[in-house]
Simulated scan of single mutants.
Amino acid sequence: MEAAAEVVHRQGAERTTIADIARAAEVPVGNVYYYFKTKDELVAAALSEHERHLDRLVGLLGELPGPRERLKALVDGWAGQRDLAVRYGCPTGTLASELGKRDEGEGGLDAEAGRVVRRLLTWVEEQFREMDQEDPEGLALTLVGAYQGMSLLANALRDPSVMERECARLIGWIDSLGNDRQPGSDRQPGSDR
């Protein structure tokens, strides 16, 4: 499953073959076919791996003393993955975008990718809620959307400094948020209000 997540991230779901996964996992192709009959089953496994990674990450972040520290550590983690983002984009975001182009209807792999993204949004929203911020859902969309945007731009421009600068901006924004819902405490990153 780890190999599936890595190869699908590097090559995309459509270009990845079961043989590619077998090579990356260093197992015979027949072993992969034994567990995964179709490429879509492998893509589903890659999404499951993304979800497991997210669960491990939020578990580690949950050990930090407060929501502000947890959010800043999340952003620091994004900055630490800048070289990967420059090369391939966000693992879950790029896969969700690719799967969204399929005509699968409800319940397809595109919906599964959206569910994984929603889990991150929900966790971030909980942190803003714990900080007693107004519109925690909107703030979560802003933070996760900023990550997706910076990942896309860093990838398109092949420039890791995009991630460095934007992550620093997001950490400053998180630090600027008050805990008492004062007017202006829900400013968006980079706004002059």
Rank of each mutant, 00 (worst) to 15 (best):
G77M: 03
N179I: 06
P65N: 00
S97T: 14
G59C: 03
D135L: 14
D186C: 09
V32D: 06
A4Y: 09
P136Q: 07
V117P: 00
E166Q: 08
E63K: 10
V32L: 06
S161W: 06
S97D: 08
Q188K: 15
D40W: 06
E106K: 11
Q188S: 15
Y35N: 05
R68A: 03
P65F: 04
R56S: 15
S48F: 11
V75K: 03
G100A: 07
R119N: 03
L143P: 04
A146F: 14
R56F: 06
E98Q: 12
R115K: 02
P28Y: 05
M1F: 15
S97V: 02
L84Y: 12
E112I: 02
G138Y: 15
A146T: 13
G138H: 14
R165D: 15
H50R: 09
T142H: 08
A25W: 12
P160H: 12
L121I: 05
L121F: 04
E63S: 04
E49D: 10
L177C: 15
P160V: 04
L84Q: 10
V116D: 00
D186K: 10
H53N: 10
A113E: 01
K39P: 02
V116G: 03
S176G: 14
G108P: 06
P189K: 07
A168Y: 05
V117D: 09
T94N: 09
R181A: 08
N31G: 01
Q127C: 13
A22L: 09
V43P: 01
S97I: 01
A156S: 11
A73L: 08
V116Y: 02
V117L: 13
R52I: 15
Q188Y: 15
P67L: 11
A4H: 09
G172C: 03
R15Q: 10
G138W: 14
T92S: 05
E125D: 05
V116M: 00
G184K: 12
A22M: 11
A79G: 04
G12D: 07
A22G: 09
L95V: 01
R56N: 12
T16P: 01
D76H: 05
I171D: 00
V27A: 11
A156C: 09
L109T: 02
E63I: 02
H53F: 08
G172D: 12
P91H: 10
T94F: 12
V75N: 02
Y147G: 08
E49H: 15
P67V: 03
A146P: 04
S191K: 14
L141C: 07
T92Q: 06
L42C: 14
D55W: 12
P136R: 05
G105A: 08
E63W: 12
V43S: 02
K72A: 05
E6D: 09
E2P: 00
E51A: 07
R70H: 04
R118S: 06
S161L: 08
G178W: 15
A79W: 07
L121E: 13
L143W: 13
S176Q: 07
T38A: 02
T16N: 04
